[in-house]
């Protein structure tokens, strides 16, 4: 890609990433949330991939790390559900909201476990979507030698 594209995208990617974080963090107050924010996070890396090529991005955020982040996000989400069982007696119970942390409506810190779940989902969606695109880009680069990655496609693991 040309210098203009490279320069602009290296500036803009920070803004996109920040916007994704904003969408995730205020997911319980405005439209958006974990899934939309995660997609935006991944798209900042996709922009980098378009501008600088796949190998540059893969050296910044290797697939193995993204795969671990992906598992971590899902695990955190499940952990919140299980903590609900431990603290509140039922799966997915909003234990923070009821017991320890009432919060005030429309404040950033409110709604108990919902922002935490949003964060977990954001990590999961961002990492898995990044992995999907990284894997699809890998096909073009080495279409004769497919990796094992696509078979256990991390993007299909469940609902967010």
């Amino acid at each position: 890609m040309t210098v203009i594209v490279k320069t602009v995208s290296s500036w803009v990617k920070v803004l996109i990433f920040l916007f994704g974080i904003y969408i995730i963090l205020s997911g319980h107050l405005t439209p958006g949330g974990g899934f939309a924010g995660g997609v935006i996070l991944a798209s900042s890396y996709v922009l980098l991939m378009l501008a600088f090529g796949r190998s540059f991005v893969a050296s910044n955020l290797p697939g193995s790390l993204a795969s671990r982040l992906d598992c971590l996000g899902a695990f955190l989400f499940a952990l919140i559900a299980i903590l609900g069982l431990v603290c509140g007696g039922t799966f997915f119970v909003n234990f923070l909201y009821q017991e320890y942390f009432p919060g005030e409506p429309f404040a950033l810190v409110s709604a108990g476990t919902i922002p935490l779940s949003n964060m977990a989902i954001g990590i999961k969606v961002g990492a898995s979507l990044f992995l999907v695109i990284l894997t699809l880009a890998a096909f073009r680069a080495e279409s004769q030698q497919p990796t094992e990655q696509d078979l256990a496609d991390p993007g299909v693991r469940g609902k967010e």
Binding site: S67, R68, C71, A74, F75, A78, A81, I82, L85, F91, A152, P154, R157, G158
Partner: peptide, 20 residues
């Protein structure tokens, strides 16, 4: 009452732990 979601939760959590 407790085990009902376990049927879904146990394999789901394990599915995310195993690839690591």
């Amino acid at each position: 009452n407790a085990p009902l979601p376990m049927f879904v939760a146990i394999p789901l959590v394990a599915a995310f732990v195993l690839p690591v």
